[in-house]
Design a binder for these strands. Structure first.
Lengths: 343, 343
DNA sequence: ATGAAAGCGCTAACAT
DNA sequence: ATGTTAGCGCTTTCAT
């Protein structure tokens, strides 16, 4: 492994000049630059990240802290952030904030803040859908490094996320505008609300939108699940099986639950969209396959935006510590249409 | 940010002793250890990863190189590796080996090997389902760091993966033992074989198993797709729609394709398992929901095993540079049963 | 524009 | 068992 000294000798300059050249600093003559680059190339020299970090105080590495390492939303945020960072020459180190109640989860969580995140391995953090205590938020900020959140707001932190209420409002208005008036809802169960109180926010928006349209909110039309397909299936079975109500439309707080609902409808002999319109939120990859109408959000873009904000802040730009609402879009497919005369 | 010197002063020892103590070295008296730990705690001292790395030559960080950052298999391998590494006090840095043909993919790929992986940010690598050229494998080994592969073999490298042939054999034998004799197959399309030639291997095993059982291999019973649900759906539509063949069982090279096939069967009015038995490979999380019989593999465990092997090698243990086949298991659910007299 | 040299904060011989 | 000290490989003033 060639070191900077070798390159300097071969190029006939000092190590300082090599350092400047490879760091892309301006104050190097084109001729010197060429010689240095040639020498570096010939020796196959690549700067040592550790030595550079120690000397400069910058690691060129970003940490991403996530409550789940799998899952549609999380993996896409990761991919988006990675793409942007990689293009900027940054690496991405993953930290799992264990929010389960598995053995040792609480201790692992404490250690993450007390030790792991403090070892100066990264220049900045991306926090994805983290439900942190005030103490933890303070610990995060006490690291003295830029932090940007994705998915859900965090006080004192720049955050980037979907406006849940607006998205749900759009989904609900869509079926209302189609002429539906008996509209059911599958939301996130509060106790299973891993995803940042998203369930509660979306449900409230559903109810508010109905009221604004002069429709009544009926408890029997509302159910909740855990954001999974399986959960959506069960909840829909309950909702659609109840003979005392007859919804013609179903608004789900996530696409995965909506897909489960699609299956439940089939199993109950209800044809979508003839007998029932279904709309979800997310823009899940599989939605196309299911012909699911949805309010799409773009988690990959959210990851990108977070990384860009971080990069700007690391470049010394002031970044507003406020919330930024990401774009979302109604994608109409085959699962929704105007209510049909029943057969 | 307290440094080691402060801790040494507070504890009344040298920095060397502080270093030894916090590194968990044996040669420290319990009393000294206690004093040092108390001092470190009081000052909120955590070693600087960069300084420690530069001085010791060890980063306590592992790199994981993956062709996809999303996807059922990949994210689980990541999660498993992360869990094991985190418990050992290691961090995990993610590198995306872009194998797509998007703009700049080829160049990004070249740079990954030429620069990114060479900056000494990690002590070792986990390579997940990587189809590398011989040159790239050499570049990887030239880094002089332990490498272990997951999913697919890599010459000269310790690898951990499913025995695709054995898994497919088991799936096929399962339906044969149930009494099926007209057995269709949806494999991975060779040109879409992102997953390490898995498609070809599994298909060959399907055919061999049929022959061993004295059954004929019929081209018309074989189709292929891209390992997705959508692809499985389309392929199954073709297979089941062809009036010249009448398979009573369908063996798929992945669970996602099998789920697509389940939907296709429904749409064609074929009841599973009465009219058609379906079995997949993977043990996908959604399989339970679909009642899908499958040969389950455990990618999270594979990630764990890879990390453990790496950790052992970093501890100086010799690790055999050979292939290790991971366990798999037939999980029988509602999608398979003996062929029924047709209605 | 370039060079000399002083660290960055820690670890690991080596010495005791 | 503990202390002394020389680096680890760079970056960055400060000179020139």
């Amino acid at each position: 492994m060639a070191k900077i000294q070798k390159v300097a000798e071969l190029a006939g300059v000092s190590t300082a000049t090599v350092s400047r050249t490879l760091a892309g600093k301006a104050s190097v003559t084109p001729e010197t630059r060429a010689r240095v680059e040639a020498a570096a190339k010939e020796l196959g020299y690549v700067v040592s990240a550790t030595a550079s970090s120690l000397a400069s105080g910058r690691t060129r590495n970003v940490g991403i802290v996530m409550p789940f390492l799998t899952g549609w939303f999380f993996t896409r945020v990761l991919a988006g952030a990675h793409a942007t960072l990689a293009d900027a020459g940054y690496d991405l180190t993953v930290y799992h904030l264990d929010m389960s109640d598995a053995t040792g989860a609480a201790e692992r969580r404490k250690r993450l803040f007390a030790e792991v995140l403090r070892r100066k391995r990264v220049d900045a953090f991306i926090a994805v859908s983290l439900e942190l205590t005030d103490g933890e938020i303070d610990e995060l900020h006490a690291l003295g490094k830029p932090v940007v959140g994705v998915g859900g707001e965090m006080k004192g932190t720049r955050t980037i996320s979907l406006d849940d209420a607006a998205a749900m409002r759009l989904a609900t208005q869509h079926v209302i505008s189609l002429g539906h008036s008996v509209i059911a809802h599958i939301g996130g169960a509060p106790e299973l609300d891993r995803d940042f109180r998203i369930g509660a926010g979306r449900r409230a928006a559903y109810e508010a939108t109905l009221r604004e349209a002069g429709l009544v909110v009926d408890e029997r039309l509302v159910s909740s699940a855990d954001f999974t397909m399986d959960g959506g299936y069960r909840a829909a079975l309950q909702l659609l099986g109840d003979p005392s109500v007859a919804p013609t439309a179903l608004v789900c707080a996530s696409d995965e639950m909506a897909m489960g609902a699609l299956l439940a409808a089939r199993d109950l002999g209800r044809e979508v969209p003839h007998d029932l319109s279904v709309v979800g939120i997310d823009g899940h990859t599989l939605g196309e396959f299911w012909g699911l109408t949805t309010v799409a959000q773009y988690p990959e873009d959210q990851g990108r935006l977070a990384a860009e904000a971080l990069l700007r802040e690391l470049d010394g730009d002031e970044v507003a510590k406020e919330h930024f609402s990401v774009p979302f879009k109604l994608v109409v497919r085959r699962s929704t249409r105007a209510p049909q005369p029943q057969r």
